[in-house]
Design a protein around this nucleic acid. Structure first.
Length: 827
RNA sequence: GGGCCGUUAGUCUAGCUGGCUAGGACGUCGCCCUCACGCGGCGAAGAUCACCGGUUCAAAUCCGGUACGGCCCA
């Protein structure tokens, strides 16, 4: 066997194996292999946002451990990689970086600038993912901004349109007045803001009385369509059905009953405007109230605002408050804190507008989503509630159209003469209706020949919510169902309500089948201080820097072992450093083994005389194999990594190797047979350690494997060696008990040496052991060679009887008396 | 206001389908230049497992409540 070099250069080793694996092509999904069962990972294509961050590191380490583990278990694994390019985020960055507004440029030029930025970001993220050593099948790489991907998004739309899931409608939508586009519920964040509650007098028609209503949005008075009170509110229910005058605009509206009005809030009388907030939308729908749209798409008051036409919302608010004050209608004001919806990209206050939009009938699928969410396996299980709660909470269908530029076009046209909708045929896509005509000459309805292409585009989630099918090869491969539904969809806690949800509704609608069979959840990465990691909190750690400093194998141990799957984990340098030290330990013990195994030829277990400690270690090895396998099966990476590390460091290195050293070094004393038995054990157990560690620490284990084991084992890569199967026959409880006694006994004698400030290799002249009974005596007698060797005892005398002396902590019936040479000399 | 999750030594974290002296890491303290490793070894100290009540022969683990914290949503 080749000895390992003394120094361990992780940067060189990691780079080298990353290259070699790619050259070997061993991480590619094999479409020609029909023997192995397929296993597909629905890698979520990331939104390219710049350099890789520690959250990405956590995610990709999870994906990669699953991919590697499953391959070792004999699966034909698909681990694809794509990039989710489109979106408002990139548009905003391009606008900021170039100090432009997108509508001031030709659309193609703006799109080009977006693509250039995305390409730059992809390169940065890809570098990080490569450095992490992910076993991705790079032949699958795709970008959602490529026309070939448009084709899939557009085709999925066409099919869903044909199935009746897509419709156009004028409905209230969340609207970002800054970006001038509709946005989905999932894109609205809620933040606490200071506001002012205005108490305004609304005169009751035909009387001198008035009611005081409280509102934080007085600028919506011109769009007031009703006033509502709680029907059980004794103060006001007598006014229900009466007419009340909207101040300044002098319209009358009806006072209506509404249970959801909180009598405690404000005055208990509220105005309904179209639309001040989502509650207004619900009320308008429920009571079938008229709608007065007050805002235009850029957030300014429109012609329905009368004298306030053209003002911004804030200007209008000031003007209206001023006018109310002058008219003596503003009773008083009060400062409040309230939650307002803001655009998750630009943080502008989200308004609610009615505009013609495309929708997907997602609410029809809520029951199916819930049913499938319950059937899917979730790691950890309780995370399924997030998806179910979200699906149930949705008030509106999904708005899939956006008024943006950098996105997949919606493949429809409208006949200029009759307005007929022309839906693209599946064979027309990819197509951009803004640039191309439909591939028909005449409108099928009126015969007109002029068409207007749809200018709206798809929500980015329309691209990324079909990945389970796309990764499987849909729509181009006839055999795509081999890989569909995805075996595992990995997702962060923050995107369950978007990614996991949209995937489920789209695939259910398209194929009447669940998108994925299991969901693997990762938590968020926190800073060292336990708060969410962010640049503004100064607790941010750049992933490329960390990877360069500590190496992928160390960082991956942090990702795997930092906490339970699904829980948020802090980035802790101490954990990474522990990982580094573990690697050094593994490297050193491997080097030690390679030296002592230089003359070793692998043999079968029955050709060596295994000693008690050998059998003890082999039995423990089987048990840890079972635990680690079980942990990987349940995606409990933290348990897996802790089990292997503790076993390797403390059981294998500290206990076994230390006790077996004398046998290995001095065959002339103990005999060649006992040395061979120790060699056999070292060889077998180190290999097992490398195997079990390889999904977490792929580079170093590969390096050690290649030097020490490849010539004998024959697998081109450790990543292709079959996962060890738990062998119950090797578990031997009595032997483990005996071994534990030997190890504990050695420990106790060492403790005595330590307490007396003696070096551990202080020679013992005679060691007298009172085992307490025959069974213990036999066990110790069996391990006598290792005991004597490890403790540097010249003679060891083991007696079955009880006796006095120092008791062994874990085995208090065993006592010993040690006579030291040093003590004899100094006395 | 609703939902979910959490509260374990100075710090982080495991265990929570109930059962030995609650495991690990970091940090702290003491000792040891033992021929793989001082990025090491051998040891030590440090936790009434948030609080109250219940179920049980037995609870960190199950049930109910309280307090505090986090995330998501309204």
């Amino acid at each position: 066997m080749q000895p390992l070099p003394k120094e361990y250069n992780f940067a060189e080793i990691e780079r080298r194996w990353q290259q070699k694996w790619e050259e070997m092509g061993i991480f590619r999904y094999d479409w020609n292999d029909t023997n192995r069962v397929s296993f597909s990972i629905d890698t979520p294509p990331p939104y390219p946002s710049g350099e890789l961050h520690m959250g990405n590191v956590l995610n990709w380490t999870y994906f990669d451990m699953v991919a590697r583990y499953k391959r070792l278990r004999g699966f034909n694994v698909l681990f694809p990689q794509g990039w989710d390019c489109h979106g408002l985020g990139i548009e905003i960055q391009v606008e900021k970086a170039n100090n432009i507004r997108k509508r001031d440029l030709p659309p193609d030029q703006f799109r080009g600038m977006c693509m250039a930025l995305v390409e730059k970001y992809i390169a940065m993220m890809k570098e990080g993912i490569l450095k992490l050593g992910c076993s991705i099948d790079w032949t699958t790489e795709y970008k959602t901004m490529d026309p070939d991907y448009w084709r899939r998004t557009q085709l999925s739309f066409i099919l869903l349109h044909q199935k009746g899931y897509m419709y156009q409608g004028t409905h209230p939508v969340n609207w970002c007045p800054h970006d001038e586009t509709a946005i989905a519920d999932a894109e609205v964040d809620y933040v606490k803001r200071d506001g002012i509650l205005n108490y305004i007098r609304f005169p009751l028609e035909g009387t001198d009385e008035h009611l005081l209503i409280a509102t934080s949005r007085p600028e919506f008075i011109p769009a007031c369509v009703a006033v509502e009170v709680n029907p059980s509110d004794e103060r006001f229910n007598k006014y229900i059905g009466k007419k009340i005058v909207v101040p300044l605009v002098n319209r009358t509206v009806t006072i209506i009953p509404e249970e959801s009005v909180d009598p405690e809030f404000g005055t208990g009388v509220v105005q309904i405007c179209t639309y001040g907030d989502k509650e207004d939308v619900k009320t308008v729908m429920k009571h079938k109230l008229p709608v007065i749209m007050l805002l235009s798409e850029n957030g300014r008051i429109n012609e329905n605002g009368g004298k306030y036409h053209g003002l911004t919302v804030n200007q209008a608010r000031a003007a209206i408050v001023q006018d109310l004050t002058e008219a003596g209608l503003l009773d008083h004001t009060e400062k409040i804190q309230h939650e307002v919806g803001v655009c998750d990209r630009c943080k502008a206050h989200v308004e609610i507008l009615e505009r013609k939009q495309w929708f997907m009938k997602t609410r029809d699928l809520t029951e199916a989503v819930e049913k499938n969410a319950n059937e899917v396996v979730w790691y950890p299980d309780y995370m399924k509630n997030r998806l179910i709660d979200w699906a149930r909470s949705l008030d509106w269908d999904w708005v899939i159209s956006r008024q943006r530029l950098f996105a997949t076009p919606i493949p429809v046209w409208y006949c200029k003469s009759c307005g007929e909708l022309i839906l693209a045929k599946p064979e027309w896509v990819p197509i951009d209706p803004k640039l191309e005509r439909p591939k028909i000459d005449r409108c099928p309805k009126c015969g007109g020949s002029e068409f207007t292409g749809e200018t709206d585009v798809f929500d980015t989630w329309m691209d990324s919510s079909i990945t389970c099918a796309v990764h499987a090869g849909w729509p181009d491969r006839a055999d795509w169902k081999r890989l569909f539904p995805a075996d595992v969809h990995p997702s962060g806690t923050d995107i369950i309500r978007t990614w996991a949800y949209y995937l489920m509704v789209r695939h259910l609608a398209l194929f009447d089948e669940t998108a994925y069979k299991s969901v693997l959840i990762n938590g968020m990465v926190l800073g060292q201080d336990g708060r969410k990691m962010s640049k503004s909190l100064k607790n941010y750690v750049a992933a490329p820097e960390a990877l360069n400093k500590y190496g992928s194998d160390a960082i991956r141990q942090w990702a795997a072992g930092g906490g339970a799957t699904g829980s948020d984990i802090p980035y802790r340098v101490q954990d990474v450093e522990y990982g580094r030290r573990f690697l050094v330990k593994l490297w050193n013990v491997s080097g030690f083994c390679s030296k002592l195994l230089a003359d070793y030829t692998p043999v079968e277990a029955d050709s060596v005389e295994l000693q008690p400690l050998d059998r003890w270690l082999l039995s423990k090895t089987e048990k840890v194999t079972q635990k680690v396998t079980d942990a990987f099966e349940k995606c409990q990476f933290n348990i897996a990594v802790e089990e292997i590390r503790n076993f390797t460091w403390h059981v294998f290195c500290d206990a076994y190797v230390e006790a077996a050293k004398d046998r290995l070094y001095r065959p002339e004393v103990h005999g060649q047979n006992k040395r061979a038995a120790a060699q056999y054990t070292l060889y077998a157990v180190l290999y097992r350690v490398l195997q079990m560690l390889s999904p977490v620490v792929p580079h170093l284990t590969e390096e050690i494997y290649q030097t020490m084991y490849a010539p004998d084992k024959g697998y081109p890569s450790l990543q292709q060696a079959p996962w060890p199967v738990f062998n119950e026959a090797l578990v031997d409880e009595p032997t483990e008990k005996h071994g534990d006694l030997i190890v504990e006994f050695i420990g106790e004698v060492r403790r005595e040496k330590a307490e007396n400030r003696m070096s551990l290799n202080t020679p013992i002249k005679t060691l007298k052991v009172y085992a307490g009974d025959h069974s213990a005596a036999e066990a110790l007698e069996d391990g006598k060679a290792d005991i004597a060797g490890t403790l540097k005892a010249e003679t060891v005398e083991i007696l079955p009887e009880e006796g006095s002396g120092r008791p062994v902590a874990q085995f208090p019936t065993v006592h010993f008396v040690a006579e030291y040479q040093v003590a004899a000399k100094t006395s």
